[in-house]
Design a protein around this nucleic acid. Structure first.
Length: 417
DNA sequence: CCTCCACCGGAACGTGAGGAGT
DNA sequence: ACTCCTCACGTTCCGGTGGAGG
Protein backbone atom coordinates (compact mmCIF):
# COMPACT_ATOMS: atom_id res chain seq x y z
CA UNK A 1 0.00 0.00 0.00
CA UNK A 2 1.47 3.37 -0.92
CA UNK A 3 1.04 6.72 0.80
CA UNK A 4 -1.76 7.86 -1.45
CA UNK A 5 -3.97 4.96 -0.52
CA UNK A 6 -3.51 5.58 3.17
CA UNK A 7 -4.52 9.19 2.90
CA UNK A 8 -7.56 8.36 0.85
CA UNK A 9 -8.60 5.81 3.41
CA UNK A 10 -8.16 8.43 6.11
CA UNK A 11 -10.60 10.64 4.27
CA UNK A 12 -13.40 8.11 4.76
CA UNK A 13 -12.67 6.77 8.19
CA UNK A 14 -10.91 9.40 10.20
CA UNK A 15 -12.14 12.73 8.88
CA UNK A 16 -14.06 14.58 11.56
CA UNK A 17 -16.56 17.26 10.85
CA UNK A 18 -18.06 20.39 12.33
CA UNK A 19 -21.43 19.30 10.91
CA UNK A 20 -24.03 16.99 12.35
CA UNK A 21 -26.74 17.57 9.74
CA UNK A 22 -25.37 19.41 6.74
CA UNK A 23 -28.45 18.78 4.60
CA UNK A 24 -30.35 21.71 6.16
CA UNK A 25 -27.78 24.02 4.54
CA UNK A 26 -28.54 22.76 1.04
CA UNK A 27 -30.08 25.25 -1.39
CA UNK A 28 -33.19 23.14 -1.99
CA UNK A 29 -33.88 22.34 1.66
CA UNK A 30 -37.39 23.26 2.78
CA UNK A 31 -38.32 23.34 6.47
CA UNK A 32 -41.22 21.18 7.56
CA UNK A 33 -43.62 23.52 9.33
CA UNK A 34 -45.11 26.91 8.50
CA UNK A 35 -43.70 28.26 11.75
CA UNK A 36 -40.20 27.43 10.52
CA UNK A 37 -40.42 30.31 8.05
CA UNK A 38 -39.06 32.95 10.43
CA UNK A 39 -40.06 36.62 10.12
CA UNK A 40 -42.61 35.86 7.43
CA UNK A 41 -45.69 35.68 9.66
CA UNK A 42 -47.35 38.71 8.07
CA UNK A 43 -46.71 37.51 4.52
CA UNK A 44 -48.02 34.05 5.38
CA UNK A 45 -51.11 35.64 6.84
CA UNK A 46 -51.80 37.65 3.69
CA UNK A 47 -51.06 34.63 1.54
CA UNK A 48 -53.63 32.59 3.47
CA UNK A 49 -56.20 35.36 3.15
CA UNK A 50 -55.70 35.41 -0.64
CA UNK A 51 -56.31 31.65 -0.68
CA UNK A 52 -59.30 31.71 1.67
CA UNK A 53 -61.74 30.97 -1.18
CA UNK A 54 -60.49 27.39 -1.14
CA UNK A 55 -62.34 26.83 2.13
CA UNK A 56 -65.59 27.75 0.31
CA UNK A 57 -64.78 25.29 -2.44
CA UNK A 58 -63.90 28.07 -4.90
CA UNK A 59 -60.78 28.56 -6.96
CA UNK A 60 -58.91 31.55 -5.48
CA UNK A 61 -57.84 34.58 -7.51
CA UNK A 62 -54.44 34.41 -9.15
CA UNK A 63 -51.48 35.70 -7.15
CA UNK A 64 -48.32 37.49 -8.24
CA UNK A 65 -45.45 37.20 -5.76
CA UNK A 66 -42.48 39.59 -5.99
CA UNK A 67 -39.29 39.70 -4.01
CA UNK A 68 -35.52 39.76 -4.50
CA UNK A 69 -33.65 36.45 -4.47
CA UNK A 70 -33.27 34.84 -1.07
CA UNK A 71 -36.30 36.55 0.46
CA UNK A 72 -38.18 33.28 0.89
CA UNK A 73 -40.74 33.60 -1.92
CA UNK A 74 -40.60 29.98 -3.01
CA UNK A 75 -40.18 28.71 0.54
CA UNK A 76 -43.24 30.54 1.86
CA UNK A 77 -45.26 29.44 -1.18
CA UNK A 78 -44.30 25.79 -0.70
CA UNK A 79 -45.11 25.84 3.02
CA UNK A 80 -48.40 27.70 2.67
CA UNK A 81 -49.61 25.38 -0.10
CA UNK A 82 -48.46 22.26 1.74
CA UNK A 83 -50.42 23.42 4.77
CA UNK A 84 -53.42 24.28 2.60
CA UNK A 85 -53.47 20.85 0.93
CA UNK A 86 -53.24 19.16 4.33
CA UNK A 87 -56.03 21.16 5.94
CA UNK A 88 -58.24 20.77 2.86
CA UNK A 89 -57.82 17.00 2.79
CA UNK A 90 -58.73 16.82 6.49
CA UNK A 91 -62.00 18.54 5.60
CA UNK A 92 -62.54 16.13 2.72
CA UNK A 93 -61.78 18.72 0.03
CA UNK A 94 -59.69 18.22 -3.04
CA UNK A 95 -56.73 20.57 -3.68
CA UNK A 96 -53.95 19.71 -6.08
CA UNK A 97 -50.75 21.67 -6.77
CA UNK A 98 -48.54 21.69 -9.85
CA UNK A 99 -45.07 23.23 -9.58
CA UNK A 100 -43.34 24.54 -12.69
CA UNK A 101 -39.85 25.96 -12.47
CA UNK A 102 -39.60 28.33 -15.40
CA UNK A 103 -35.84 28.59 -15.27
CA UNK A 104 -34.41 27.64 -18.65
CA UNK A 105 -37.84 26.86 -20.00
CA UNK A 106 -37.00 27.07 -23.68
CA UNK A 107 -40.16 26.12 -25.49
CA UNK A 108 -43.85 26.11 -24.84
CA UNK A 109 -43.83 22.39 -25.51
CA UNK A 110 -41.29 21.72 -22.74
CA UNK A 111 -43.60 23.51 -20.33
CA UNK A 112 -46.65 21.52 -21.43
CA UNK A 113 -44.77 18.26 -21.07
CA UNK A 114 -43.86 19.32 -17.53
CA UNK A 115 -47.43 20.34 -16.67
CA UNK A 116 -49.07 17.29 -18.20
CA UNK A 117 -46.71 14.75 -16.71
CA UNK A 118 -47.55 16.23 -13.30
CA UNK A 119 -51.26 16.16 -14.19
CA UNK A 120 -50.86 12.52 -15.18
CA UNK A 121 -49.32 11.72 -11.82
CA UNK A 122 -51.87 13.73 -9.80
CA UNK A 123 -54.86 12.20 -11.55
CA UNK A 124 -53.39 8.74 -11.86
CA UNK A 125 -53.89 8.50 -15.62
CA UNK A 126 -51.78 6.55 -18.05
CA UNK A 127 -50.78 8.22 -21.27
CA UNK A 128 -47.78 6.96 -23.13
CA UNK A 129 -47.99 9.77 -25.72
CA UNK A 130 -47.29 12.53 -23.24
CA UNK A 131 -44.15 13.60 -25.13
CA UNK A 132 -46.21 15.00 -28.04
CA UNK A 133 -44.76 17.97 -29.78
CA UNK A 134 -48.11 19.45 -30.53
CA UNK A 135 -49.41 22.24 -28.40
CA UNK A 136 -53.05 21.59 -29.24
CA UNK A 137 -52.80 17.97 -28.08
CA UNK A 138 -51.30 19.07 -24.78
CA UNK A 139 -53.98 21.68 -24.22
CA UNK A 140 -56.69 19.14 -25.03
CA UNK A 141 -55.19 16.58 -22.64
CA UNK A 142 -54.94 19.17 -19.87
CA UNK A 143 -58.51 20.37 -20.44
CA UNK A 144 -59.97 16.87 -20.49
CA UNK A 145 -58.42 16.08 -17.11
CA UNK A 146 -59.25 19.43 -15.63
CA UNK A 147 -62.89 19.37 -16.77
CA UNK A 148 -63.48 16.00 -15.14
CA UNK A 149 -61.85 17.17 -11.91
CA UNK A 150 -64.10 18.28 -9.11
CA UNK A 151 -61.69 20.23 -6.98
CA UNK A 152 -59.17 23.06 -6.94
CA UNK A 153 -56.03 23.11 -9.03
CA UNK A 154 -53.19 25.48 -8.24
CA UNK A 155 -50.35 25.99 -10.74
CA UNK A 156 -47.20 27.60 -9.35
CA UNK A 157 -44.90 29.23 -11.91
CA UNK A 158 -41.64 29.73 -10.07
CA UNK A 159 -38.90 32.07 -11.34
CA UNK A 160 -41.23 33.16 -14.09
CA UNK A 161 -38.79 35.92 -15.14
CA UNK A 162 -36.16 33.33 -15.97
CA UNK A 163 -38.23 31.71 -18.68
CA UNK A 164 -36.25 32.00 -21.89
CA UNK A 165 -39.37 33.03 -23.77
CA UNK A 166 -41.83 35.30 -21.96
CA UNK A 167 -44.43 34.59 -24.58
CA UNK A 168 -44.76 31.08 -23.18
CA UNK A 169 -46.31 32.64 -20.08
CA UNK A 170 -48.72 34.69 -22.17
CA UNK A 171 -49.79 31.58 -24.06
CA UNK A 172 -50.14 29.45 -20.95
CA UNK A 173 -52.31 32.00 -19.21
CA UNK A 174 -54.57 32.24 -22.23
CA UNK A 175 -54.92 28.45 -22.49
CA UNK A 176 -55.74 27.75 -18.85
CA UNK A 177 -57.85 30.76 -17.96
CA UNK A 178 -60.56 30.48 -20.60
CA UNK A 179 -63.00 28.28 -18.73
CA UNK A 180 -66.64 28.98 -18.19
CA UNK A 181 -66.79 27.37 -14.78
CA UNK A 182 -63.65 27.36 -12.64
CA UNK A 183 -60.13 28.10 -13.83
CA UNK A 184 -56.99 26.84 -12.13
CA UNK A 185 -55.40 29.31 -9.72
CA UNK A 186 -52.05 30.60 -11.00
CA UNK A 187 -49.33 31.70 -8.62
CA UNK A 188 -46.45 33.50 -10.36
CA UNK A 189 -43.20 34.03 -8.51
CA UNK A 190 -40.60 36.49 -9.76
CA UNK A 191 -37.71 38.60 -8.51
CA UNK A 192 -37.97 41.02 -11.39
CA UNK A 193 -40.42 43.81 -10.64
CA UNK A 194 -40.22 44.98 -14.25
CA UNK A 195 -41.37 41.58 -15.42
CA UNK A 196 -44.92 42.85 -15.76
CA UNK A 197 -43.79 45.00 -18.69
CA UNK A 198 -43.17 41.89 -20.74
CA UNK A 199 -46.68 40.53 -20.30
CA UNK A 200 -49.64 41.35 -22.48
CA UNK A 201 -52.01 43.73 -20.72
CA UNK A 202 -54.87 41.21 -20.82
CA UNK A 203 -52.60 38.51 -19.37
CA UNK A 204 -51.35 40.87 -16.70
CA UNK A 205 -54.85 41.77 -15.55
CA UNK A 206 -55.66 38.05 -15.28
CA UNK A 207 -52.46 37.20 -13.42
CA UNK A 208 -52.07 40.07 -11.03
CA UNK A 209 -55.45 39.87 -9.32
CA UNK A 210 -53.65 39.70 -6.00
CA UNK A 211 -50.12 40.91 -5.40
CA UNK A 212 -47.73 39.96 -2.67
CA UNK A 213 -44.51 41.87 -2.26
CA UNK A 214 -41.86 40.26 -0.06
CA UNK A 215 -39.22 42.62 1.30
CA UNK A 216 -35.63 41.51 1.92
CA UNK A 217 -34.67 40.40 5.42
CA UNK A 218 -32.72 42.87 7.54
CA UNK A 219 -29.49 41.90 9.32
CA UNK A 220 -31.24 40.93 12.56
CA UNK A 221 -33.81 38.75 10.84
CA UNK A 222 -31.05 37.09 8.82
CA UNK A 223 -29.21 36.39 12.06
CA UNK A 224 -32.27 34.62 13.49
CA UNK A 225 -32.71 32.54 10.35
CA UNK A 226 -29.04 31.55 10.22
CA UNK A 227 -29.02 30.74 13.94
CA UNK A 228 -31.98 28.41 13.52
CA UNK A 229 -30.31 26.58 10.63
CA UNK A 230 -26.89 26.51 12.32
CA UNK A 231 -28.39 24.95 15.44
CA UNK A 232 -29.48 21.94 13.40
CA UNK A 233 -26.54 21.81 11.00
CA UNK A 234 -23.52 22.22 13.28
CA UNK A 235 -22.22 20.54 16.39
CA UNK A 236 -22.96 22.72 19.38
CA UNK A 237 -19.37 23.69 20.11
CA UNK A 238 -18.36 24.06 16.45
CA UNK A 239 -19.90 27.42 15.77
CA UNK A 240 -20.10 30.73 17.61
CA UNK A 241 -22.66 33.48 17.33
CA UNK A 242 -19.98 35.86 16.01
CA UNK A 243 -19.49 33.61 12.97
CA UNK A 244 -23.23 33.60 12.34
CA UNK A 245 -23.34 37.37 12.65
CA UNK A 246 -20.59 37.76 10.05
CA UNK A 247 -22.56 35.53 7.65
CA UNK A 248 -25.68 37.59 8.31
CA UNK A 249 -23.83 40.86 7.77
CA UNK A 250 -22.42 39.70 4.44
CA UNK A 251 -25.78 38.51 3.19
CA UNK A 252 -27.44 41.71 4.43
CA UNK A 253 -24.97 43.59 2.23
CA UNK A 254 -26.12 41.42 -0.63
CA UNK A 255 -29.69 42.81 -0.47
CA UNK A 256 -30.77 40.56 2.40
CA UNK A 257 -30.28 37.32 0.50
CA UNK A 258 -30.80 34.55 3.06
CA UNK A 259 -29.71 31.92 0.56
CA UNK A 260 -26.26 33.52 0.44
CA UNK A 261 -25.98 33.49 4.23
CA UNK A 262 -26.85 29.79 4.33
CA UNK A 263 -24.34 28.99 1.57
CA UNK A 264 -21.72 30.94 3.52
CA UNK A 265 -22.38 28.85 6.62
CA UNK A 266 -22.03 25.63 4.62
CA UNK A 267 -18.87 26.74 2.83
CA UNK A 268 -17.25 28.06 6.01
CA UNK A 269 -17.91 24.72 7.69
CA UNK A 270 -16.33 22.91 4.76
CA UNK A 271 -13.25 25.10 5.06
CA UNK A 272 -12.91 24.22 8.76
CA UNK A 273 -13.35 20.55 7.86
CA UNK A 274 -10.65 20.77 5.20
CA UNK A 275 -8.01 21.47 7.82
CA UNK A 276 -9.70 19.27 10.44
CA UNK A 277 -10.33 22.16 12.78
CA UNK A 278 -13.11 21.43 15.31
CA UNK A 279 -14.76 24.80 14.98
CA UNK A 280 -15.50 27.54 12.44
CA UNK A 281 -13.79 30.93 12.75
CA UNK A 282 -14.66 34.31 11.25
CA UNK A 283 -11.91 34.10 8.71
CA UNK A 284 -13.45 30.91 7.29
CA UNK A 285 -16.53 32.96 6.43
CA UNK A 286 -14.51 35.59 4.58
CA UNK A 287 -12.68 32.87 2.70
CA UNK A 288 -16.01 31.20 1.96
CA UNK A 289 -17.35 34.47 0.58
CA UNK A 290 -14.39 34.77 -1.82
CA UNK A 291 -14.79 31.17 -2.96
CA UNK A 292 -18.52 31.55 -3.58
CA UNK A 293 -17.85 34.63 -5.69
CA UNK A 294 -15.18 32.78 -7.71
CA UNK A 295 -17.54 29.81 -8.15
CA UNK A 296 -20.22 32.13 -9.47
CA UNK A 297 -17.88 33.78 -11.98
CA UNK A 298 -16.43 30.44 -13.11
CA UNK A 299 -19.94 29.15 -13.78
CA UNK A 300 -20.70 32.22 -15.87
CA UNK A 301 -17.43 31.97 -17.81
CA UNK A 302 -18.03 28.30 -18.61
CA UNK A 303 -21.34 29.11 -20.27
CA UNK A 304 -20.08 32.05 -22.35
CA UNK A 305 -20.12 31.64 -26.14
CA UNK A 306 -16.74 31.14 -27.83
CA UNK A 307 -16.53 34.72 -29.10
CA UNK A 308 -17.11 36.14 -25.62
CA UNK A 309 -14.48 33.82 -24.17
CA UNK A 310 -12.06 34.95 -26.85
CA UNK A 311 -12.73 38.59 -26.00
CA UNK A 312 -12.18 37.77 -22.33
CA UNK A 313 -8.89 36.03 -23.21
CA UNK A 314 -7.86 39.09 -25.22
CA UNK A 315 -8.58 41.28 -22.18
CA UNK A 316 -6.55 38.93 -19.97
CA UNK A 317 -3.57 38.87 -22.33
CA UNK A 318 -3.57 42.61 -22.83
CA UNK A 319 -3.74 43.04 -19.06
CA UNK A 320 -0.97 40.49 -18.54
CA UNK A 321 1.49 41.60 -21.18
CA UNK A 322 1.05 45.38 -21.32
CA UNK A 323 0.95 48.01 -18.63
CA UNK A 324 -2.42 48.01 -16.86
CA UNK A 325 -3.27 51.50 -18.15
CA UNK A 326 -3.01 50.22 -21.71
CA UNK A 327 -5.75 47.63 -21.32
CA UNK A 328 -8.01 49.65 -23.64
CA UNK A 329 -10.62 48.65 -26.22
CA UNK A 330 -8.31 49.40 -29.17
CA UNK A 331 -5.41 47.31 -27.84
CA UNK A 332 -7.72 44.50 -26.78
CA UNK A 333 -9.26 44.49 -30.25
CA UNK A 334 -5.82 44.17 -31.90
CA UNK A 335 -4.99 41.14 -29.78
CA UNK A 336 -8.45 39.73 -30.45
CA UNK A 337 -7.96 39.99 -34.23
CA UNK A 338 -4.60 38.18 -33.98
CA UNK A 339 -6.25 35.37 -32.01
CA UNK A 340 -9.06 35.07 -34.56
CA UNK A 341 -6.56 34.74 -37.42
CA UNK A 342 -4.57 32.19 -35.44
CA UNK A 343 -7.69 30.10 -34.72
CA UNK A 344 -9.42 30.70 -38.06
CA UNK A 345 -12.46 32.20 -36.30
CA UNK A 346 -14.63 34.99 -37.81
CA UNK A 347 -13.43 38.44 -36.76
CA UNK A 348 -16.21 40.55 -35.25
CA UNK A 349 -16.25 44.33 -35.68
CA UNK A 350 -14.81 46.58 -33.01
CA UNK A 351 -18.35 47.83 -32.35
CA UNK A 352 -19.48 44.32 -31.49
CA UNK A 353 -16.37 43.53 -29.43
CA UNK A 354 -17.00 46.71 -27.47
CA UNK A 355 -20.49 45.42 -26.68
CA UNK A 356 -19.07 42.06 -25.59
CA UNK A 357 -16.67 43.84 -23.21
CA UNK A 358 -19.65 45.73 -21.77
CA UNK A 359 -21.46 42.41 -21.31
CA UNK A 360 -18.45 40.92 -19.49
CA UNK A 361 -18.52 43.98 -17.26
CA UNK A 362 -22.22 43.55 -16.49
CA UNK A 363 -21.64 39.89 -15.65
CA UNK A 364 -19.03 41.01 -13.11
CA UNK A 365 -16.21 39.16 -14.87
CA UNK A 366 -14.20 42.25 -15.77
CA UNK A 367 -14.40 45.86 -14.72
CA UNK A 368 -14.75 48.19 -17.72
CA UNK A 369 -14.80 51.95 -17.13
CA UNK A 370 -15.17 54.58 -19.85
CA UNK A 371 -12.24 56.96 -19.54
CA UNK A 372 -11.13 59.97 -21.55
CA UNK A 373 -7.55 60.15 -22.69
CA UNK A 374 -7.90 63.73 -23.90
CA UNK A 375 -6.21 64.14 -27.25
CA UNK A 376 -5.97 60.38 -27.40
CA UNK A 377 -9.69 59.90 -27.40
CA UNK A 378 -12.28 58.20 -25.28
CA UNK A 379 -12.17 54.48 -24.60
CA UNK A 380 -12.98 51.75 -22.11
CA UNK A 381 -10.27 50.83 -19.62
CA UNK A 382 -10.53 47.21 -18.50
CA UNK A 383 -9.38 46.16 -15.04
CA UNK A 384 -9.35 42.50 -14.05
CA UNK A 385 -9.98 40.97 -10.66
CA UNK A 386 -7.25 39.07 -8.86
CA UNK A 387 -8.51 35.69 -10.09
CA UNK A 388 -7.92 36.32 -13.80
CA UNK A 389 -5.28 33.55 -14.04
CA UNK A 390 -7.94 31.05 -13.03
CA UNK A 391 -10.40 32.37 -15.62
CA UNK A 392 -7.81 31.91 -18.36
CA UNK A 393 -7.82 28.15 -17.79
CA UNK A 394 -11.61 27.97 -18.01
CA UNK A 395 -11.46 29.78 -21.35
CA UNK A 396 -9.04 27.13 -22.62
CA UNK A 397 -11.62 24.45 -21.84
CA UNK A 398 -13.46 25.61 -24.94
CA UNK A 399 -12.52 23.15 -27.69
CA UNK A 400 -11.90 25.93 -30.20
CA UNK A 401 -9.71 27.99 -27.89
CA UNK A 402 -7.50 25.31 -26.35
CA UNK A 403 -4.89 25.76 -29.11
CA UNK A 404 -4.12 29.23 -27.77
CA UNK A 405 -2.64 27.65 -24.66
CA UNK A 406 0.71 27.04 -26.33
CA UNK A 407 0.69 30.17 -28.46
CA UNK A 408 3.86 32.31 -28.27
CA UNK A 409 2.61 35.71 -27.20
CA UNK A 410 5.72 37.71 -26.39
CA UNK A 411 6.81 38.06 -30.02
CA UNK A 412 3.26 38.99 -31.00
CA UNK A 413 3.11 41.81 -28.46
CA UNK A 414 6.52 43.12 -29.59
CA UNK A 415 5.51 43.17 -33.23
CA UNK A 416 2.33 44.99 -32.38
CA UNK A 417 3.31 47.97 -30.31
C1' DC B 1 -10.93 78.54 -25.70
C1' DC B 2 -10.99 75.51 -29.50
C1' DT B 3 -9.66 71.31 -31.82
C1' DC B 4 -9.36 66.74 -32.40
C1' DC B 5 -8.57 61.95 -31.12
C1' DA B 6 -10.36 57.34 -30.56
C1' DC B 7 -13.68 55.35 -29.28
C1' DC B 8 -18.79 55.19 -27.28
C1' DG B 9 -23.37 53.82 -28.03
C1' DG B 10 -28.06 54.40 -30.32
C1' DA B 11 -30.63 53.15 -34.41
C1' DA B 12 -31.59 50.74 -38.41
C1' DC B 13 -30.82 46.97 -41.03
C1' DG B 14 -29.22 42.07 -42.70
C1' DT B 15 -29.03 37.15 -41.94
C1' DG B 16 -29.64 32.53 -40.53
C1' DA B 17 -31.70 29.25 -37.25
C1' DG B 18 -35.58 27.30 -35.50
C1' DG B 19 -40.45 26.99 -34.13
C1' DA B 20 -45.49 27.30 -35.49
C1' DG B 21 -49.07 26.63 -38.56
C1' DT B 22 -50.97 24.45 -42.58
C1' DA C 1 -42.68 19.78 -46.96
C1' DC C 2 -43.59 24.28 -47.22
C1' DT C 3 -44.15 29.15 -45.84
C1' DC C 4 -44.28 32.53 -42.42
C1' DC C 5 -42.72 34.54 -38.31
C1' DT C 6 -39.71 35.62 -34.55
C1' DC C 7 -35.48 36.35 -32.49
C1' DA C 8 -30.62 36.38 -31.50
C1' DC C 9 -26.54 37.92 -33.27
C1' DG C 10 -23.93 40.85 -35.90
C1' DT C 11 -22.89 44.91 -39.19
C1' DT C 12 -23.03 49.63 -40.86
C1' DC C 13 -23.68 54.29 -40.14
C1' DC C 14 -23.18 58.25 -37.64
C1' DG C 15 -23.73 61.77 -34.10
C1' DG C 16 -21.77 62.38 -29.49
C1' DT C 17 -18.13 63.00 -26.03
C1' DG C 18 -14.35 64.52 -22.38
C1' DG C 19 -10.21 66.38 -21.78
C1' DA C 20 -5.01 66.91 -23.32
C1' DG C 21 -2.69 69.80 -26.14
C1' DG C 22 -2.11 73.68 -29.27
Amino acid sequence: MNDDEISIENMWTQSKSVFVNKSVLKVNYTPKKLSDALHREEIINRYQRYLIDVSRGLSPNNIFVYGKSGTGKSLVTKLVLKDLVQVASQRGMNVKVININCENLRTENAMWIDINSQMQELFNVENSHILWNSRSKHVAFFQSLFNKYNGILIIVLDEIDKAVDYNIINKLVRSVSDYNNQSPCLICITNDVKFQNYLESHVLSVLAQNELQIDPYNAEELCDILRARARIAFKNESITDIVIQVCAALSAQSYGDARLGISLLAKAGEIADEISRDYVIENDVRLANERLEIDRIVEVVKTLPTQSKLVLLSCIYTYEHMSKRECLTGNIYNIYKKFCIELDIDILTQRRVSDLITELDMLGIVNAVVVSKGRHGRTKEVVLDTNWRLLKNYCFEDSRLKFLKDFKYTSMFKSFF
